[in-house]
């Protein structure tokens, strides 16, 4: 893994890196260079499989983190390419030309986080949420409980038990706090 990380750094400039396991490493790169890096890894270094594409909402920093998880079937190595984009008007480059299955991932991320991938087909087409009018539900400023109480009628008489208070009452004040 060390060699490929070194080569990436030589070719694409400064990166943030972390080797998690002997065959799994994490690479952070600025968003403009992410897709060139993915293309190079796929075409020249054997990372031909797109295992996963996910998004994380870092609301405190005002950023979304996109993670492309690539796999090399020959060496069985995995590489996570992370890239942070701005939370206001989030947009990223599409990889659907490299991996056709990325279309579905990008459709889902577009629906759940509101990140748009210009050029990717099926952007804005409902994936799970048909007729959704609120802000994208996987953003952390989306209040699920308030939404449910407003829109989804429940059964009366259901008792909601807060886990922390329940454990605190049951096992003492700080029962939930041991790490």
């Amino acid at each position: 893994m060390k060699e490929i990380l070194k080569e990436i750094e030589e070719r694409f400039g400064p990166i943030w890196e972390r080797v998690q396991r002997p065959k799994l490493a994490q690479v952070g790169i600025e968003p403009a260079k992410a897709v060139p890096l993915l293309t190079w890894l796929k075409e020249h270094r054997g990372y031909v499989t797109l295992v996963h594409l996910s998004a994380v909402d870092w609301i405190e920093q005002g950023e979304f983190q996109l993670t492309w998880l690539l796999g090399n079937p020959e060496t069985e190595e995995r590489l996570m390419i992370c890239s942070r984009i701005d939370r206001e008007n989030p947009a990223a480059e599409t990889v659907s030309g490299l991996w056709p299955q990325a279309v579905t991932y990008e459709q889902e991320i577009n629906e759940m986080f509101g990140v748009s991938f210009p050029g990717s087909p099926r952007q804005g087409v409902p994936f799970i949420l048909e007729g959704w009018k609120d802000i994208p539900p996987m953003r952390r400023d989306f209040d699920t409980v308030a939404f449910v109480e407003k829109h989804i009628p429940g059964r009366e008489g259901r008792k909601h038990i807060d886990t922390r208070t329940y454990i605190g009452e049951k096992f003492g004040e700080k029962g939930y706090l041991h790490d």
Partner: peptide, 19 residues
């Protein structure tokens, strides 16, 4: 299906089927 179960506060699942 009765009262939402463990998914009672999910944004996309119904809580009472008999409605």
């Amino acid at each position: 299906t009765i009262n939402g179960g463990m998914y009672w506060d999910s944004y996309n699942t119904i809580n009472r089927l008999d409605l």
